[in-house]
Design a protein around this nucleic acid. Structure first.
Length: 188
DNA sequence: AACCATTGCAACCGCAACATC
DNA sequence: AGATGTTGCGGTTGCAATGGT
């Protein structure tokens, strides 16, 4: 049974998690032809994916220079600083963290930092009438308090943000090193 | 051991900006 | 100048993995 074989067989588009085979096809194709117009790339490569999906997969996961997991304390600080400055401009923030993607930073922010902020909120926010969504509100009347988003806060309060860094979280079924094998680039 | 809740992350969706014709 | 296609972005969702009871 194929996943998305609807009765309209003009365009069957696969969705959901990428398989290793699809990854290899995409990597091979880009290695041989370079990036181009993603829609036609997807078609030419024989992938039953949208160009959008291919682009996302490539940028967030398959690119050789992409770094995943193990966000360092320095990077965390930088993220907090840049987020305090620009808000949710994830792609803008990502440009200042080589090898990191906007998606990863966004996820990291939401799952780690935002959580820490929420935990700290009852203490930092006692004078605030309304606890805004931590991702968007930086404005709190308590001017004397150190902005929990600021690097200064993180420096002086290592605990709240000292999330145990993921331990070797690069354990996928296959690593990028496995995929980026020289021999892959020969075939087409 | 089984069930339920929570967490973390990959991927999708909708929209806006931009490029090309 | 307008229509159409493509890209980039931010928000959101789905689901596997993990932890707790």
């Amino acid at each position: 049974m194929d996943k998305n074989t609807s009765n309209t067989q003009e365009v069957e588009v696969r969705k959901g998690p990428w398989t290793m085979e699809e990854d290899l096809i995409l990597i091979n194709y880009i290695a041989n032809h370079g990036e181009g117009v993603w829609n036609s790339l997807a078609r030419s490569a024989g992938l039953k994916r949208t160009g959008k999906s291919c682009r996302l997969r490539w940028l967030n996961y398959l690119r050789p220079d992409v770094r995943r997991g193990n966000i360092t304390p320095e990077e965390q600080l930088l993220i907090m600083e840049l987020h305090a400055r620009w808000g949710n401009r994830w792609s803008k923030i990502a440009r200042h963290l080589p090898g990191r993607t906007d998606n990863e930073i966004k996820n990291y922010w939401r799952t780690r930092i935002q959580k820490q902020i929420k935990q700290a909120e009852p203490f930092a926010n006692q004078n605030c009438t309304l606890a805004h969504d931590a991702s968007t509100s930086h404005a709190c009347g308590a001017k004397d308090e150190v902005d929990p988003y600021s690097p200064a806060y993180a420096m002086s309060n290592p605990e709240p943000f000292a999330t145990p860094l993921p331990t070797e979280s690069n354990d996928c079924f296959w690593s990028m090193e496995d995929l980026w094998f020289p021999q892959l680039f020969n075939g087409d």
